[in-house]
């Protein structure tokens, strides 16, 4: 989960109210999925409990009267998180593969399954390509990340299409 370290990292530039923090997160990382306020405050509560942030109270009522500041421990936590590589997805549980095998097992046309999937992948790739063309550098990088993954899926679809006869023999025993 990247929300907690991302919020911490955003606090490193200076203390913020919960609302400002949510807005900063959404602007930079919330492309299709803005953070819920509940998640912001529950995450901040956890960070507070773990000594990674501290609260500067301002006069007045309500949660937005609290300004959150990162602690030394929080700065170290961000550094450790940045230095730790993300575990690559294993991609070994694939619904696409399951569909192809089941199509073959049930006597359906597996090539149709692959074609339908290709069409759907390309539809999304067109949408991302359009968005990328109209967006700023941040949009371009986020869309490129998605496009490269979709492209990898499509290469798998092509390879599988070329091996369908062999796969059919193997699956049907």
């Amino acid at each position: 989960m990247t929300v907690a370290p991302a919020l911490l990292g955003l606090l490193q530039s200076g203390p913020r109210h919960g609302y400002d923090l949510k807005r900063a997160f959404d602007e930079r990382f919330g492309q299709d999925k803005p953070l819920a306020y509940g998640q912001v405050y529950s995450t901040l509560a956890r960070l507070l409990k773990n000594g990674l942030v501290e609260v500067e109270h301002e006069p007045g009522d309500g949660p937005d009267r609290k300004r959150y500041a990162i602690t030394e421990a929080g700065v170290s936590d961000v550094a450790v998180w940045l230095a730790t590589p993300e575990k690559p997805e294993p991609y070994l549980q694939s619904a696409m593969y399951t569909k192809v095998v089941l199509a073959l097992l049930t006597g359906r046309d597996a090539a149709d399954v692959l074609d339908a999937q290709r069409t759907e992948h390309l539809r999304l790739m067109r949408e991302l390509t359009r968005r990328k063309s109209e967006g700023d550098l941040a949009d371009q990088l986020v869309c490129d990340h998605a496009l490269f993954h979709l492209e990898a899926d499509l290469r798998w679809l092509e390879l599988t299409a070329a091996r369908l006869d062999d796969l059919a023999t193997s699956v049907r025993g």
Binding site: D115, T119, M125, R126, T129, L147, F148, L154, E158
Partner: peptide, 22 residues
């Protein structure tokens, strides 16, 4: 043969074994 290039198109047609599949 690159999907990222094909994503600039309006639609695609797939050629396989000398036929247009769709």
């Amino acid at each position: 043969h690159e999907a990222r290039v094909a994503a600039y198109s309006d639609r695609e047609a797939v050629v396989r074994d000398g036929r247009v599949r769709e």
